[in-house]
């Protein structure tokens, strides 16, 4: 195998995971359908008054995004864990962190990205203004990677445990609260006329902070779970 740059390796892992996911397209759709369903439930529960819904919209969309990305977390490593490829990955000479980063990017492209792209459609359900929708998509694009990254740590820690799905959410949701606060805060700032620059920069800071640390921590978690 010719010497591969780390980015080449990253691309390889991402391509592989996307290919695998495309074979079982249902998984991708379930996350999306769950997100749309949860968001659509709120008006039924709260009532159709538009001004109420408009005020709640950012929070509802963000909480639904958090829950939807928790849904697909256990699948991040479980398939490879089951058929042994995860062990091969750990034995590979390349750094495990890059492999894990590849899996995180793949997971994000299957859960975070679709959510961000479909969010405007749901925003219309809540009669959100155009700038608010724009900020919502931007905030989701900045925030959902953090959910996948922190989620990767949770998924690695609960590898192979029965009842792992619920456990991951219990471990990861408290850690994602800052993302929720600044994500919803960004959209709300725009709807109330202020600029969302500060909120978005916080989200960007969280993402970079997570980008630096989570691959390493998640690979340590994998080593612990696979001992």
């Amino acid at each position: 195998m010719k010497k591969m740059s780390l980015f080449g390796l990253l691309g390889l892992v991402v391509r592989r995971d996307l290919l695998l996911a495309m074979r079982r397209r249902a998984d991708v759709l379930t996350t999306l359908i769950f997100f749309v369903m949860v968001v659509s439930l709120f008006p039924l529960g709260v009532g159709p008054e538009m001004d109420m819904l408009r005020k709640m919209a950012p929070g509802v969309v963000w909480v639904a995004a958090l829950l939807a990305s928790m849904l697909s977390l256990p699948r991040m490593f479980s398939a490879d864990y089951a058929d042994g490829t995860l062990e091969q990955m750990m034995l590979a000479p390349q750094s495990l962190s890059v492999l894990v980063l590849g899996k995180i990017v793949a997971h994000w492209m299957l859960s975070g990205l679709p959510l961000a792209l479909i969010a405007p459609v749901l925003g219309l359900q809540f009669d959100m203004s155009a700038p608010a929708l724009g900020t919502l998509v931007l905030a989701l694009l900045l925030g959902t990677p953090v959910l996948s990254m922190i989620g990767a740590i949770g998924a690695a820690l609960t590898l192979g445990l029965r009842g792992g799905g619920v456990l991951v959410s219990l471990l990861v949701l408290p850690l994602c609260i800052p993302v929720l606060i600044f994500g919803a805060g960004a959209v709300e700032a725009v709807t109330s006329g202020m600029s969302a620059a500060s909120n978005l920069s916080f989200l960007g800071a969280f993402m970079l902070f997570a980008l630096v640390f989570t691959p390493f921590v998640a690979s340590q978690a994998l080593r612990i779970s696979m001992e």
């Binding site: 408290p174 800052p178 606060i181």
Partner: peptide, 18 residues
């Protein structure tokens, strides 16, 4: 242990953002 370490890094961030 790993979760506790990750949690302790997050505690100040959570306190600040809340």
């Amino acid at each position: 242990a790993l979760l506790a370490i990750v949690g302790s890094v997050n505690v100040p961030i959570i306190y600040f953002s809340v």
